[in-house]
Every structure is written in C-alpha cells, then in structure tokens.
Amino acid sequence: MMLFSAQRTEKLAFAALWASAAIVVLPVLGIIAVMLYRGASGLSWGLLFGAREGLLPAIVGTVLLVSLTALIAAPLGVAAAVYLNEYARAGPLVRLIRLAIVNLAGVPSVVYGLFGLALFVTLFHFGRSLLAGSCTLALLVLPLIISTSEEALRQVPQGLRHASLGLGASQWQTVRRVVLPNALPGIITGLILSISRAAGETAPILFTAAFYSLTSPLPKSVFDPILVLPYQLFVMATEVPNVPESTKWATALVLVVVVLGINLFAIVLRARLRGSRRW
C-alpha cells in the first residue's frame, strides 16, 4: 500500500508550507486590521496637521532621524563589510571583529541608548539632539548592516572576481565595478531591514534625541532635539491623561504607515537600481 506516494507527500508538504506562510502573515494582517478598526475614527486633519498636538512634526522628526541614521550607518557598514569580505585575510583579528559584530547585534537597544547618552550627548556635547539620536541609532543598526552586506558580498560568484583580476583590474576596481554592482540588491535589502528597524525603535532615542512638547516645533539644526513618532506614542500612552483611545490607535497607525512608507521608498529605489545595472 502506498500510503506516502510521492504525489501525496508533495501535497502534504505544500499544505504545510502554505500553512506556515499563512501563520506568519495572519498576525501582521490582524495587527493592521485592529489598528484600522480602532484608529480610523481618531484620524483627523487636526491630529495630523493641527497646530497643537499635531503629529506632523513627529512624522518629520522620524523621517529626519531615519534619513540621517541611514546616511551615517550605510557607508560605514558597507565599507566595513567590503573590508572584511574582500580585503581582510582570514586570521584571529578578523575572527575577533566578526565575533564582536555578532555579539553587538544581540545587545538590547536600551543599552545603546545609555551608551549614546554617555558618548554623544555628554562627551561629544551634541546635547539631546537629532545628531546624537542618529549616531546612536547608527551604532544600533551597524552590526545588522555589516552582516547582511557581507552575506550579499559572499553571494557574488568567485569566478567573477577572478575574471576581473585576470583582465588586469586592481582589487579596488574589481570591488567597485564587479563585486559591488552584483551585491547591490542584497546590500540594499539589508539596509532596508536595518533602517526600518531603526524607524520603530524607542529606547535608543529616549535619552539621546526625543522630547515631548505640545507646542511641537521643528528642529532648526541637527543639534536640536526632535519629536519622533514612537516616543510620542509612548508618552501619549503612559503619561498624558485623558487622551482618547482612538487617538492613540491613530498615532500607532501613523507610525506603521510611516515605517511602511520608508520601506516602500527603499524598495522602489532598489528596483530602479536593479533596472539600471548596465555599466
């Protein structure tokens, strides 16, 4: 009796895989549905753009914070990954660096917050500011950027490097013209993951960048503190009395939309880079 014929196992495997995918996706859809259901009534022109309690400055603050973080962390992280993967010869030093990176990725984000407070806010005199917050977040996402970039670089076939070097290209020319263009989609995917993680973090900016104010000014320079959505939500939910339930949900909804918006922007960017890979 063929209880498990190839066809049957195939069907079973398909069902199991489909179910896993569904289990992963359902909670996400559920969260969005609940937020829409409870927050939609709280969404209003006043909530978004109102002079008092409007979320606009916090949205702008979040976007600024994330952009500056990306600007600091992306070049550093990619450069470090290129060094580790393309230049460094395997040895104890490189092993130590990799070990450090793996461990840094596991440090809780509140520790980064305290470190940022000590280093950037106090020691470097950045104050509680956009710059200090971005530097702290950059430190937080660097390990992630380095390891995803390294993974993308490893995916580039060795034969391509050899072909380029064999044609008389220097190491740097090979990296710039062959390795990086081929690794770029993977690198950018890693950047997107890392940056969207940064966009939703609260703990690291708690002591380094965020403040809460009802007059909600926009920062005038990188040395000004900023309003940011996660912190706004945090304060609203825990410290300010009498905030209508629907306003909180609406704020959460806006936060998720902003993070998704940043991701979408990055994804479009990646698609365009892919399209133009004709060097």
């Binding site: 076939p157 034969g159 391509l160 050899h162 072909a163 064999g166 044609l167 081929n182 004709r278």
Partner: peptide, 16 residues
C-alpha cells in the same frame, strides 16, 4: 595580468 591574459576553465562572463 594585463600582459598575461587568462581564459578560465569554467566560462565566467559578467552578468551584464
């Protein structure tokens, strides 16, 4: 390597 060129055992064209 400019003076001594090499054709590899496995074809390795760039994906461009």
């Amino acid at each position: 390597r400019k003076r001594v060129g090499m054709v590899f055992q496995r074809p390795n064209p760039f994906p461009v």
